[in-house]
């Protein structure tokens, strides 16, 4: 049995959970077994049954007032109990913020070998091998797991969304959590409203110091808007507060793996690349044909961002209107 952790926030299932549902289902098929979901939080049964479209046949729903906020210690106990009661051999999670904390704790609790940040389905032909990205995207390592129980966290966007059609039954699950288990208190949750979260965005438009000042970001936001993309930036840009700190990608910022990364007026320093080089497709717009970023790019335009970006925005608008 494969147990899939359904991450959620404020009653909503996160997009990453649909991706890992598909991953878990594909892995279960490969192993000749079944995949079941476990949701710990306060998600309504109706919402959970939509996970059936990704092939999960059953979802365990653990709800009580102590589980409304994510706390790795409490959620680990709840998921470990589900592992015990279902006899699951593999637990699959997203390698997103919560998944990173939870997968590590679960691995230690269950003495289960862990692959943190898998990029593919395991190879189960001969043992259990899972590929993961290492050295900040500069290499891959194939991890072998021999423990009875295994934990895999999957890099966001590495597997993609795979709809299969179907419905899932939802069962109430008693995770056995009481007030004594809860050691941390969430005082407030502050979401940046109505923008797409960078960490799980499929499309990202990013810009660097070449844009000269914060007043020039309008065209970047417009392009992102047209595409339905999140915005990001290089480190110097967030260091001088042209853009908010959570947009900074790279070695010291966040690592992202979108399907499309458009880098505008960013030179492509190795520390920047470390955060974005696993993106599926990279487009670089830079006025300097020698900018190192072109070596890491799939498509490039040598030109002035102030001319190219508005034109690209119009061209995408035209494409969207015709599609």
């Amino acid at each position: 049995m494969v147990l899939v952790y359904i991450d959620n926030s404020e009653g909503q299932i996160k997009k990453a959970s649909y991706e890992v549902a598909g991953y878990g289902v594909a892995l279960a098929e490969q192993m000749g077994t079944e995949a079941v979901g476990i949701c710990v939080g306060n998600v309504a049964n109706d919402a959970l049954s939509t996970l059936g479209e990704y092939g999960l046949s059953k979802i365990l729903n653990a709800q009580n007032e102590h589980l409304n906020y994510f706390d790795s210690q409490v959620h680990t106990k709840a998921v470990a109990k589900a592992v015990e009661s279902t006899g699951a051999e593999v637990v699959v999670l997203s390698h997103n913020y919560n998944g990173k904390a939870l997968s590590a704790r679960l691995s230690a609790r269950l003495k289960a070998g862990l692959v943190a940040g898998a990029v593919e389905l395991p190879d189960t032909n001969n043992g259990f091998l899972v590929k993961k990205s290492v050295f900040s995207g500069k290499a891959f390592a194939n991890y072998e797991l021999k423990t009875d129980k295994k934990v895999i966290s999957v890099n966001p966007n590495a597997f993609g969304l795979h709809k299969k059609g179907g419905t899932a039954t939802v069962e109430t699950f008693d995770a056995g959590i009481s007030a004594d288990d809860v050691k941390v208190k969430v005082l407030s949750v502050n979401k940046v409203s109505d923008t797409i979260a960078l960490s799980d965005a499929e499309l990202v438009v990013s810009a660097g110091r070449g844009l000269k000042g914060p007043e020039n970001w309008g065209m970047i936001e417009e392009l992102a808007n047209t595409l339905g993309a999140a915005t990001a930036c290089s480190r110097p840009v967030s260091d001088v507060d042209w853009r908010p700190h959570h947009e900074h990608v790279g070695q010291t910022g966040i690592t992202i793996r979108p399907n499309l990364y458009i880098a505008v007026a960013i030179s492509g320093a190795i520390q920047h690349l470390a955060g974005v080089n696993s993106s599926k497709t990279i487009v670089v717009i830079n006025k300097d044909a020698e900018a190192p970023f072109f070596k890491a790019a799939d498509y490039g335009i040598v030109g002035d961002a102030f001319e190219v970006v508005p034109k690209l925005n119009e061209a995408i608008k035209a494409y969207k209107a015709s599609a």
Binding site: Q73, A101, S107
Partner: peptide
């Protein structure tokens, strides 16, 4: 920045 685990802290806490 070599094995990019994000893992040791969580395991230690558990």
């Amino acid at each position: 920045i070599d094995y990019n685990g994000f893992v040791v802290g969580g395991m230690l806490a558990e």
